[in-house]
């Protein structure tokens, strides 16, 4: 069973996407802030991380760069899932090592799940 870490502070999104992923037989770990996300990533070494950018305690950019600078976590594909869309944000996330950048409002749950499946099939 593939492990997915979902770092997102908005509980309604945790609830919907989290449940949808569990239906797809993924094992889902949830974090509501950046620090918890980071420590869960190091402990569980998931197959994929979904990362919001605006997060309490540690923002998504910080989490991203810490994950990429740690040899244990640097190869885990990361999908940035946010509603920020400034070109500077996109650029910064992608150059920091995010695999894909998705704007939540532009994708349905089903689209997001398909993207996750796509990234997972490429990574292994």
């Amino acid at each position: 069973m593939k492990k997915i870490l979902f770092v997102e502070d908005e509980e309604s999104l945790q609830k919907s996407l989290g449940a949808a992923l569990e239906q797809q037989k993924y094992q889902v770990f949830r974090a509501l802030d950046g620090e918890t996300g980071l420590s869960l990533a190091k402990k569980e070494l998931p197959d994929l991380i979904l990362l919001d950018l605006i997060l309490p305690k540690k923002n998504g950019f910080e989490v991203l760069s810490e994950l990429k600078s740690d040899t244990a976590t640097k190869d885990i594909p990361i999908i940035v899932l946010t509603n920020l869309e400034g070109s500077a944000d996109v650029e910064r996330a992608l150059t920091s090592g995010a695999t894909t950048y998705l704007v939540k409002a532009n994708y349905t749950l089903q689209d997001v799940i398909a993207k996750i499946a796509g990234v997972l099939s490429h990574s292994k």
Partner: peptide, 14 residues
């Protein structure tokens, strides 16, 4: 604005 809108979208998708 987009945060609640995407939350509504995903709940309805579900």
């Amino acid at each position: 604005l987009r945060s609640p809108l995407s939350a509504i979208k995903w709940q309805l998708n579900m």
